[in-house]
Every structure is written in C-alpha cells, then in structure tokens.
Design a protein around this nucleic acid. Structure first.
Lengths: 205, 205
DNA sequence: ATATGCGTTGAACGCTGTTCAAGGGGACAT
DNA sequence: ATGTCCCCTTGAACAGCGTTCAACGCATAT
C-alpha cells in the first residue's frame, strides 16, 4: 500500500509539473493558480500540498526542469563550437539568448526573487549555475592562461551578468524592444571587445 | 470648494506617496498593502482610488520620484568627473551602482515588469531613461567621433544593460553576494575593456 | 430652515494561497 | 465474510488581498 501511494503521488507530481510548466511558459509564473491547476490535474487543491511545499515550491520544481534544459542547450552548443575561445564565448552567449528568447517566461521564472526566505536557494540551483559558469570559465582560461582562478571567476561572473543584462533589457519591450538580431549584435560586440578579439572597430563581425 | 478639495487631494496624494515610498524602500514594492497604507495615512481605503488609479499607479508614482533622484545623482556625479571619456563612463556606472546599492528596493521597483498592460509605460519613464542614455552617449561619442548615431545608440544600450546586469546579479545574494567593492571592480574591468582603455591586463584598478 | 449636489467612506465582493476536520477505502485480524 | 483500524485524500472554510459603489454627511445655495 505504501508503494502504491508513492506511485500515485509521483504520477500526480509529474502531472502537476507538466501543467504548471505549460502555464508558466504560456502566461508567466505570476499567473499560476492553485485552483485552476487542481481542476486541470483532476485532483483536490489540498492534494497539491501533499506533493509540493507550496506554490513557490512548485515554481521551483519547474525551474529545476528549465535549468536542466538550459544547461543541456548550452552544453550542446559549445560542443559544436570551434576552437577559438572568443567564438566559444559568443556561442555560449548566443545559445543562452536563444533559450531565453524561445521561452522568455520560463527563463524569467528562473530569476524571480521569491527566494526571499533565507537559504531557500536549493542546492541544485547553485549547482546548475556553477555548471554554466564553468562553461564560461573554460574559454576564459584559454585566453588568460596566467590569470589566477579568482580573477577568472570574477571575469566569468562579469561576462555572465553583462550578457544576462543585455538579454533581460533587450527582451523587455518597454525599454527597447530590440529585435533578437540586434541583441546578438550587442552581445558579439561586447564579448569581442572584452576578450580583445576586436580592438578598434565599433561594429561587430 | 473645488479648490479646497483639490488641495485636500494634493495633500493626501503627497502623504500617501511619502508612506508608500518609505514602505517600498524598507520592504520592497511587493509588500505594499492598501489597508495598511490607508490606516497610516488616516484615510479610507477608497480614498486611495480617488487619487491614484490603483496600487500599480501608486508604485509608478514612487518610481517617478525615484527616477528623478537617480537622474540627479548621476548628473551630479558626471558634472564632477574629469575630461577622460572612459573615466566619465566609469563615474556614471559607479554612481548608478551607489544609487542601486543605497536603496535596492526602490531601484528594483523601477524595473518590476508590472507594466504588462500595453502602452502602460508612462511618457516620463521613457524620458528619464533617455536622459540616462544621453549621459552615456556623450562620452561614447567623444571616444568614437566617426561612429554613426545608431551605432552610438547600440553601444549605449549595450553598456547600460551590461552594467545593469552586473549590478542586478551582484546585489542578488542568491547568486554571488559579491561585496560592493567587487562589483565596482567588475564594472571598471568591463568598461575599460570595452572602451579599449585597457587592452591587455586582466585586473583593472 | 430646507434642499441640493458632490466628495468621502468602509462594508462587501471576488479573488488569492493555505489549512485541517471529516470522510473514504484498502489491508489486516478475526 | 465481517469488522476494525489507520492513513490518505478531500474541499469547505479561513485569512488576506485589491477594488468597487451604494450610502452617508457636509458645505453651499436658495
């Protein structure tokens, strides 16, 4: 019987996750409703709380999936990239942009700061972030073989945050409404400048 | 009588704005409560809606004040800066960081995307943004006298978004919890690299 | 003094996430 | 086959939210 319940719960968990993911993808994390979710999943509202801590926990679970797919996307992209470190960085940034641009709502949900509660940041979250950072640090180390690790780390965070900011504000229609091609151009410009691959020109490639 | 009510309303508007601003500063825009606000301002909950469209409108009004102070802060900073364009850019970014770091909640409220409704972006918002962009574009034009205006514009947005991203994630404890000095270092590194003021070294100063 | 019009009010509405007493159903003992 | 028990699921109930609007009261005009 114990196993039976376990299975039922696992199935319900998956079903809820699927529905929640679809809702976040289509309408954003803010429009998740407990009642609508339960109704569509064919369970009671209370059942959600047998499987997730609360609605925030559910969004967190969605983020887990999203982060996983993001990691794979970027990993695949850099696997196909050439040997030039600068181009590798651009490839990483480009795949990051493509991911964010394809599913902006899922992507934004990764960064909604409802983790206000202390230490509510799950371990896997920081782990996935490290995975991303490591992929950025690798080409940077090739570019600067003599730089100490903490300087590589600082450059990594700087580049990630910069590209993240460009994408964040670029996708926000209120500020610029820049087309995706323009965002790619901005990223390419920034990265080539920072890595020193382009010392003089103003426009990129 | 008409003048009388007008004055009463203006006073109430100011009082509500003061209280709301304090609340946003201390606890973030998300924790603004209509009832608490009315109770503290000594008015009925409905009175808020005689003076503001809704709660979003109130936050928008707070943002108006905030954006004004931000503009002045940056303006003052660049007025005191030297003639070197790169250092001017760094000064702008530094004052932006100082502002965000002093009142992170007020600063973040500027960018909460509750302007989801179409064309809900007030004119003054875009205007203040243009004011910021113009201050960035000026030193950039000095650095690249021959660049066409739209390339200057693209660089402006790129730099603003990058610095914004660095500050955004830098102040977010969940991702790095980097001390403010480290954030300044990151910004300085990025700007010197992008402007070409620092071509080889890894660490800035 | 009475009537009129308008600004202000706060109880009520519809919505939210979350809880927990009550009911249902499978497993085991008799 | 029946009874007992226990745990899981349920959904009505709760506390709180932003927002509204019929009713109230006050200041002015008659």
């Amino acid at each position: 019987m114990a196993r039976d319940t376990e299975k039922r719960r696992a199935e319900l968990r998956d079903r809820l996750l699927d529905i929640a993911e679809r809702e976040v993808r289509n309408n954003g994390a803010a429009s998740l409703r407990a009642r609508a979710l339960a109704s569509e999943a064919g369970c009671a509202v209370g059942a959600i709380y047998n499987v997730f801590d609360d609605m925030t926990g559910l969004v967190l679970a969605v983020n887990g999936r999203t982060f996983g797919r993001l990691g794979e996307t970027v990993t695949n992209a850099v696997a196909k990239a050439g040997p030039d470190p600068t181009e590798q960085l651009i490839t990483i940034a480009r795949s990051y942009l493509a991911f964010a641009s394809t599913d902006p709502n899922l992507w934004r949900a990764l960064f909604v700061a409802d983790m206000s509660t202390d230490s509510a940041v799950p371990a896997w979250y920081l782990q996935e972030l490290q995975r991303l950072f490591a992929m950025i640090a690798a080409p940077l180390t090739k570019l600067h073989p003599d730089a100490p690790p903490d300087e590589i780390d600082l450059m990594t965070r700087t580049l990630f945050s910069s590209v993240h900011g460009i994408i964040l504000l670029g996708l926000e229609r209120r500020i610029s409404g820049v087309p995706e091609a323009k965002i790619e151009e901005m990223i390419g410009f920034l990265l080539r400048r920072v890595t020193g691959a382009d010392k003089g020109r103003v426009s990129g490639d």
